[in-house]
Structure formats: structure tokens, C-alpha cells
Simulated assay, not measured.
Amino acid sequence: MLGRAAGWGALGGGPQDSDRVALTFDDGPSPRTPELLEILAQHTARATFFVTAPACEAHPELLQKLLDSPHQVEAHGRWHRHAMLLTPWQEWAQIGWHPRAGQTGPLLYRPPYGGHSPLTLPLTWLAGRQIALWDVEGRDWTDADAPTLAQQTLARIRPGSVVLLHDGPAVTPELLTLLLEGLKARGLQASTLAELPMQRIRLRQGLKRVWASYGG
């Protein structure tokens, strides 16, 4: 719980004096991916896609489309399973898998559900990965409609925020459009995590995250 809520040692939001906000999509690629890419292109916006191994195997052409795009592609795991449900060697394989393995530069890993086990941080360090979390949830897995979700999400977004969305839900394209329009109205630009850039979550920031999740 503290691994996800506090996020100590992981990467979180960017500078609060920034004019950027990072939109991120988990669980893809999916048949919804081309529509999301089209909306992002219409708004001259960039995003980060955290993909899973099963989805990449099911849709290799969509993975290649993402890799050929101006967007950032990172890892969401070999299995979409909470870290506490993985054996140590499974979690090692989970963290080690990446769609851009072998490329230079830092590679990011977002644990499914943001879940941590006691081994998540040390295994990530040993694998040369960095955990990337978020501070705002779009809640596109719920039954709420897009205008309601957009209003709630935009109310929580601040400069430097990292927004969690999903590649797949039917509501996400409309929600994405409304978020991009709302960000533009506030003078904020949707960017990749690398462009944000993310900052490491330290003690004070972690305590703020816990308060926001459970107390605030």
C-alpha cells in the first residue's frame, strides 16, 4: 500500500512551475490505440503508453505503430498481475521485460495497479529500470460518463501532473478529447514523461501522496 500510495523511490510528477502535464495510457496496445493516436495528433499532443507483453503479442502491428510514433513507449509488465501475486523469480521476469529492451537510455516500468511487493524496488534497481507512477487518475474504468470524468480529472491536475488513463475503455477517446481541450484552456501542454520530466518521489512528496490518497 505504501509503495503505491507514497511511491518513495519511484518517479512521480514533474516540476510544478512547468507548463506541461503528462498523459499516460496503461494496458495497450489495443484496437482503441489508433483512435487515441489520431486524437493526440489532432491536438499536437504527446503521451506515454505503458504496454503489456500479452497485448504486444496480440497486436504486434499496433506496437510497431506506437514505436514509430512521436510518443513514448514503456513497460507495464509481462503479466498484468499485482506484484504480491508474483513469486520473486516471476517478478524479476516481470520487471525485466520491456518492448524497447536493448535500446539505450532509461527504461521505465509501471507496476500493474501500481502494486509493490517488498522486492519491487530492489529488483527494479538491479534490472536497471525506474518505476514510474502517477498522481492523478482519470478513472476511465468506472461507469461515469466522459464529461463527468473530465471535470473531476481536470480539477485535480496541476502543472507537472502525471495522469493515468487506459488504452481500451470505450469512454477514453472522448475523455482524452475533453482533457486536451481543458489543458489547452489552462495553457498546459500534454507531453511525454521524458519531456515533463518526472522527478523522484522523496519523503515529503511521498507523505503528501499518502495524505491525498487516504486523508485529503
Rank of each mutant, 00 (worst) to 15 (best):
M1P: 06
M1Q: 12
L2Q: 08
A5H: 12
A5Q: 10
A6W: 02
G7H: 07
L11D: 08
G12T: 08
G13A: 15
Q16H: 14
Q16Y: 05
S18W: 00
D19R: 15
R20I: 02
V21Y: 00
A22F: 03
T24K: 03
T24P: 01
D27Y: 01
P29I: 07
P31E: 05
P31Q: 03
L36D: 01
L36S: 05
L37S: 05
E38L: 08
H43Q: 13
A47D: 02
T48A: 01
F49Y: 11
A53M: 13
P54N: 10
A55L: 05
A55K: 13
E57W: 05
L62P: 02
L62N: 05
K65A: 15
L66I: 13
L66G: 08
S69R: 12
Q72K: 06
Q72N: 06
V73N: 04
E74M: 06
A75E: 04
A75S: 15
G77H: 04
H80T: 08
R81T: 15
H82V: 08
M84H: 10
L86S: 04
P88A: 09
E91W: 03
I95F: 03
W97D: 04
W97N: 06
H98N: 08
T104I: 06
P106Y: 02
L107H: 10
L107P: 00
R110M: 11
P111C: 10
P111E: 08
P112E: 09
G114E: 01
H116F: 15
H116P: 00
S117D: 10
L119C: 03
L123K: 14
L123S: 02
G128D: 06
Q130H: 14
I131L: 15
D135T: 11
V136W: 00
G138R: 03
G138L: 02
D140F: 03
D140K: 07
D145H: 12
A146V: 11
T148L: 12
L149I: 11
Q152Y: 01
A155L: 06
I157E: 00
R158H: 13
R158L: 13
G160W: 01
G160F: 01
V162N: 01
V162M: 03
L165P: 04
H166W: 05
H166G: 11
D167S: 10
P169W: 02
T172C: 07
P173Y: 09
E174N: 09
T177S: 14
E181W: 00
E181N: 12
L183E: 05
A185H: 06
Q189W: 04
A194V: 10
Q199D: 03
R200T: 15
R200G: 01
L203W: 15
L207M: 15
L207H: 00
R209V: 09
A212D: 12
S213W: 03
G215H: 09
